[in-house]
Design a protein around this nucleic acid. Structure first.
Lengths: 221, 221
DNA sequence: AGGTGTGAACACTTTCACAGCA
DNA sequence: TGCTGTGAAAGTGTTCACACCT
């Protein structure tokens, strides 16, 4: 069962495949709650807005989880996907930036539900330092290295303005952080082996603006 | 100068190209503030973390903006990109969901700076309705159709839980909205001609989890 | 029969390499 | 000479079609 995993994982998995795996997992967990025992690639595809062939190809990159003529066992496949995605454990996360976005992220229940525990909050603003957020003390970002080490942080969320992001990112990487979720609208430069995911809401709106402009006319244009 | 634009735009422009164009624009505007008059595809690529050939290819899809042997005029190219992306105007946006994320988005200055004006806020919670956010009244989401029409809204931001998202999205589309920025963790089903961009922060963290898990599993990670 | 797993075909994106112009 | 613009080549991701298993 674990046999083929390591060998297969040597090949590079595309960004889009990973995104879809997350999606499949969410769908499977919903189906499981609904009491569904078995699901076909066709049904999974329908709900994930992709094709059956794509679903099978994605899953086949990691092993053979289905039964021919039957489909996939919902519960078992969900477990496999959690394992593949590394969600069969919890992750220690630090939040840098206790402003509006940081605070909204901190309160967002979806993170904890998936095992992402925010164990540290840091901010450069002295007015925010010393506050306690549901048992987590807001620390001075000057103490970053100390806090990251003491709390054994694995992932850092950057919810700070662009000018500060490069510095904080470099310092986090220097103490061994291997994953960064970046909300700052700038390209972080990190060494190989460190993963960065960008969330850029203005850019998404710009893409909408482009699509709407292309289409040529808006309803009241 | 404007000649090739329309003809060329007929071809489909990829998601990744649009994303990079946004990026180039940001870089150009920074460069312009720094007093830079001319920039080469090489420099642009360097700052956008891509290749010079990619930059030239992206831009060539829309016209010939550079001068051989010289590079691109920063100010002029920025104007062209704003024009291409539809950012040479402002957009009327409605925010549905006045919770923590919605409120953080409302206060985020980056939207207005780019011409995205939040002209309406709606929420299903009676405790939030009637409040005034910097001059914008929080309305009942039951009034959605009325508000969207009255305010001539073009883009809707959904910052509401997944179960409500499908309904609100369908109603917005029904009154002619052509662009949706979706923060709800679910796949919206919209007719052709409507553009949806998803922002799914948990999925981004899951992708980080996958990357970190992978790194641990490969022999040379 | 019914539905997976997968090589092969296809489509799309990125990189290369160089002609051509300032 | 220097750097753009662009066909052609390489690379990557998706779809097809069917062998194969239950």
């Amino acid at each position: 069962m674990e046999g083929p995993r390591v060998g297969v994982l040597a090949r590079r998995i595309s960004e889009s495949t990973v995104r879809r795996l997350s999606f499949y997992l969410r769908i499977l967990e919903e189906a499981e709650l609904g009491g569904v025992g078995t699901i076909s690639s066709e049904e999974l595809a329908e709900r994930a807005a992709t094709t059956a062939a794509q679903v099978r190809k994605d899953l086949s990159l990691f092993g053979s989880f289905g039964k021919r003529g039957l489909g996939y066992a919902v519960r078992q496949l969900a477990t496999e996907l959690r394992d593949i995605l590394g969600l069969d454990r919890s992750w220690r996360v630090a939040l840098v930036g206790a402003g509006r976005i940081g605070s909204a992220l901190f309160e967002y229940p979806g993170f904890r539900r998936r095992g992402f525990e925010i164990v540290a909050v840091l901010d450069a603003d002295p007015n925010k330092q010393g506050k306690c957020w549901r048992g987590v003390l807001v620390r001075d970002v000057a103490e970053l290295e100390h806090v990251l080490r003491a709390e054994r942080v694995e992932i850092v969320i950057l919810a700070i303005p662009a000018p500060a992001a490069a510095d904080v990112s470099a310092r986090a990487v220097a103490v061994g952080v291997k994953g960064i979720l970046n909300f700052a609208p700038m390209q972080l430069r990190v060494p190989a082996g460190v993963a960065v995911k960008d969330v850029n809401m203005v850019m998404e709106l710009e893409a909408l603006s482009f699509a709407l402009t292309q289409a040529g006319r808006t309803p009241w244009g």
